[in-house]
Design a protein around this nucleic acid. Structure first.
Lengths: 378, 378
DNA sequence: CTACATTGTTAAACTGATTAAACAGTTAAC
DNA sequence: GTTAACTGTTTAATCAGTTTAACAATGTAG
């Protein structure tokens, strides 16, 4: 109810203006108008094709589905009729009958800007591309509290909206996920309940290890960590590796080196402020994602710390346009597009019964750019 | 084929690591397991409900659809059976029979990062929210060249995937749009062929007028324009108002004040470079969107121009986090969320036959922030 | 020359709903 | 006291496909 539209009021006046503009310099467009196009487009069904081709509807159906029991000549003849009539099978009827919808759903978390997010967007790109190639359509849903309360996520399957579901941006705090255990579903870029749910995620441990190795080799010993969502297993992976690698280097991690940045730009800035005030000797930040890293850098630069001369910053995700940032961000590259591709691929395999459990981890690597350097000497 | 997955290789080793992590600190989760959940979930149909309630399936159907011809007591009795059995009507069957799918498609342009775009994301948010409230699902499609060539956009209707379509980010160069003329479709934030297609867009003329008035009142007379997509009617609206308002103020616009920024950050930077070199006297830029404005500012700041002291910059869109930019960006606020809401709303009205033509324009306004100031005196 | 596969096609059942028309059972009108 | 109108429910057709089992026609083996 947030949006109150008063457009009717403006319509007439603006329309006059727009008409003018359109008339003055609109580009020529080819309208291939048909003679009787305002009539109902007269849907043709499999029966029409069968009649026209002089075969039964079963035969047409089998031609459509490339059934090998149909002979070459019959197939060719029917196919020709199909093409000439421009027949396109009704997907609803196909799905009802075959029990497969060829539709997948993507579930996004109830964040305000979930649709405009670089992280989700990149995964979605991969999902969308692969779904298209596999002949599947994509439904997008957002798991708002009310939505879950009403059981809409279960209806997705029960009412046969989709064959399977990909969940992005959820973690073990999202209990509704376990409702979906019995259906084809893949948790993307996380795990759940020690592997009860199928998943595909990036190798956060590998990335964290490389990031820490890099910072330690550059001589950093007081390394802060801006984390987020400790209820997320993959986020915990990073925290654990951070701790382990510090100890491995003979450094005892301090509680005061940790701050929650909520995965947001502003959160990253706030965390950077907190950490720099808590410990003046911190010379590097490991950040749970790029947005927090960028926020941290913004805070640092605005408050007289030079990046990377005074403080090095490492991110996670490798979202777009990072190379254009100033300084450009050293970060752990997550293969998000490939993650989307893999998740989609695996989900379809699960739906088709080709696999019965999915648990894939995709390799990650550190991308060195300008936001890291050798530790400052005081 | 860009993604080559080598995850199988990594799976075993990483899995070992992740299992360890999961076991060590996983959060307790409540698995409300049913006794016989591995069996096929045993779908119940309208027939089962009818039998159980001792009525015909027609009666159940009419209860489902709130048909007033069903008496109070019968309705109550059947509804109770429906609830107790947990019956959920099969949407495929409903759609096949009723000829409405209750699904809308959103078509995005074939840009690499269309799914991670702040502009599209905001509109999508509005569409998604309203579609949910109206009981409609959302399909997302990307109009890649191959997709259009194969006529998939027409299949969307012909094969009954959807009832209607919302097209985001297209303009008059995209000829395939005219294929959809005969179906319920709304062009979002643009016009096409002088109004042949239904549309809802923001009032770019109003926004441009306010931006130009602001710059002129601040004393700017040499105002450059970083535009994009001149084949887009709404983009032309801005160009026209820019020209008109300059003339109105007694200034003859120069060709050398115009540069195409391609709607991108990098394009904006390149355009700023071009314009500053072509005319040293330029003191302000009007930019076709925020991304280009941000790119322009980045270029200016990196090359010794102070913003806004030397050069003022105005954007268009008012995307998120602009207030956090440095300097924060003065821009024309487009009601993108509301635009999505309105487009969705109108599309459903069109599908239901409540309106037969849609041509709405939503008001815009200038948001003054730090990237504009009174003209520099030399 | 029957018996038996094999091959290609089809009739008919099925998917799970909606809806127009028919049909009883009441009530109101003339 | 019939006729007409109204209620509430059901019968049966329909939406547009898939799929199983049956069938005819042909080829092959015994």
């Amino acid at each position: 109810m947030a949006a109150k539209l008063k457009n009717e009021l403006h319509e007439s006046s603006n329309l006059a203006g727009s008409k003018l503009a359109g008339a003055s310099n609109s580009i020529q467009v080819n309208f291939n108008s048909l003679p009787a196009e305002e009539n109902p487009p007269e849907r043709i069904s499999i029966r029409d094709v069968a009649k026209q081709a002089g075969v039964s509807i079963a035969t047409v159906s089998m031609v459509l589905n490339q059934n090998p029991r149909i002979s070459r000549p019959t197939h060719a003849r029917v196919q020709r009729v199909i093409d000439s009539m421009g027949y396109r099978p009704n997907r609803l009827a196909q799905s009802l009958s075959s029990r497969y919808t060829q539709v997948l759903a993507v579930m996004l978390p109830p964040l305000r800007h979930a649709f405009a997010d670089a992280y989700f967007g990149e995964i979605l790109s991969g999902i969308s591309d692969r779904a298209g190639k596999l002949g599947h359509k994509l439904l997008i849903e957002q798991a708002k509290p009310q939505y879950i309360k009403e059981g809409k996520h279960i209806e997705l399957y029960e009412r046969r909206f989709v064959d399977g579901l990909l969940c992005l941006g959820f973690n073990e705090k999202h209990a509704f996920l376990s409702d979906l255990r019995q259906y084809p579903m893949i948790l993307v870029d996380n795990r759940f309940g020690d592997g009860v749910l199928d998943y595909v995620h990036c190798d956060y441990r590998m990335g964290a290890k490389q990031a820490m190795n890099c910072l330690l080799q550059l001589g950093h010993r007081n390394i802060g960590m801006i984390y987020a969502a400790p209820e997320s297993p993959t986020a915990r992976d990073v925290l654990e590796v951070y701790t382990t690698e510090l100890r491995h280097a003979g450094i005892e991690p301090k509680e005061s080196w940790l701050a929650d940045g909520c995965f947001t730009d502003e959160g990253g800035a706030a965390a950077a402020e907190l950490l720099t005030h808590r410990d003046k000797d911190i010379t590097a930040f490991l950040c749970g994602n790029d947005k927090m890293a960028l926020g941290a850098i913004r805070y640092l630069v605005e408050h007289g710390h030079k990046v990377p001369q005074d403080i090095s910053v490492v991110g996670f995700d490798d979202i777009q346009h990072l190379a254009y940032a100033n300084p450009s961000l050293t970060t752990v590259h997550l293969p998000l597009y490939e993650l989307g591709v893999a998740a989609c691929e695996r989900l379809v395999s699960r739906i088709r019964g080709k696999v019965d459990h999915v648990a894939d981890v995709l390799p990650t690597h550190l991308v060195l750019r300008e936001s890291t350097s050798i530790v400052r000497t005081r």
